[in-house]
């Protein structure tokens, strides 16, 4: 394993310049994924741009409408910050179940989604909340809806020369209720076999059910449907399972067969939908 070159820019401009100039280059944030992949001989990138020295990337800012998570904010902070817990509880819940506390203290919010793994927990919450990813390059900046961000298996919309600077997450709508459920097949600390973030948004007698599913398809999946006033909880669950079934395409591995993972996906969806609707009915 070669050591790789590490660049330590002090401004965003320097960083994006490096990312644009260098051929085989990767942003180094918390390092939790990069270190493992390098150690396993799966990642041979030559140049790393360590963005730890760039000011402002660690900020977590709140406005009347949303909350913006700087790319270097540790997952643990999204999990535990009182503002995220209050304003985007489904995100706090999902971030709080990634890996283990040591990893969450180190891994960064931007690096997490840049990794693009189909099993990640945080993206399930980000898609139901309709978050926006902020990208910067030497040419300027752009925004991408997180629902469009995960393009294919282990692939994202981050282009050569770009880096994630922040994620903006709209506040959970007033009166909405949410739930995050993660199913593991082996150790309790393991990657998920299936996960589901559900946000139930009541509106004019209808309830919009938004679902983000992790680990059950090559990318994070976003789904939504309306629970009409004539449907009871059981019918809502069945509708959710029907629509979830249509997208489930799990990958078999040592953690389970495709059919078992799909089953866990259904359990996660059912639990999360029921839990959200129960919360709603209590209001």
């Amino acid at each position: 394993m070669s050591a790789g070159r590490v660049h330590r820019p002090e401004t965003l401009e320097e960083a994006t310049a490096l990312l644009g100039e260098l051929d085989d280059v990767m942003v180094y944030g918390g390092g939790t994924a990069i270190q493992i992949l390098r150690k396993q001989g799966l990642l041979f990138t030559e140049d790393y741009v360590d963005i730890a020295g760039i000011p402002g990337l660690r900020d977590l800012t709140v406005t009347d409408d949303d909350i913006t998570i700087g790319t270097l904010v540790p997952l643990r902070r999204v999990e535990t910050d009182p503002r995220t817990r209050r304003l985007v509880p489904v995100a706090a819940a999902a971030y709080g179940q990634a890996a283990n506390p040591r990893v969450r203290n180190t891994a960064s919010a931007g690096g997490n989604i840049a990794h693009g793994d189909y099993r990640l927990d945080p993206p399930t919450a980000l898609v139901v909340l309709d978050a926006t990813v902020h990208l910067a390059s030497a040419a300027g900046s752009r925004e991408v809806a997180v629902r469009e961000f995960f393009t294919d298996f282990q692939e994202t919309d981050v282009r050569h020369g770009e880096m994630i600077t922040a994620i903006t997450v709209p506040r959970q709508p007033d009166g909405s209720r949410s739930s995050f459920v993660k199913m593991r097949s082996l150790s309790e600390n393991d990657w998920p076999c299936a996960s589901a973030a559900v946000l139930a948004v009541p509106e004019d007698g209808f309830v919009e059910i938004r679902m983000g599913l992790g680990a059950v398809a090559p990318t994070t999946v976003y789904l939504a449907f309306d629970v009409t006033p004539d449907m009871d909880e059981q019918q809502a669950v069945e509708a959710a399972l029907d629509i979830a079934d249509s997208v489930m395409d799990p990958i078999a591995d040592i953690r389970g067969s495709a059919s078992y993972k799909a089953r866990l996906g259904r359990v996660a969806v059912e639990q999360a939908v029921r839990s959200s609707l129960k919360e709603l009915s209590r209001d």
């Binding site: 396993q40 097949s185 150790s187 600390n189 990657w191 040592i254």
Partner: peptide
């Protein structure tokens, strides 16, 4: 009892890393 196992495919171990080889955590 619950998940510890070396998985072989044609003589090759397929889970010889700490990401894939499972041990009980405090939560187990």
């Amino acid at each position: 009892t619950l998940f510890d196992e070396m998985v072989f495919d044609q003589g090759q171990i397929t889970n010889a890393t700490m990401l894939d080889y499972q041990l009980p955590s405090i939560k187990d």
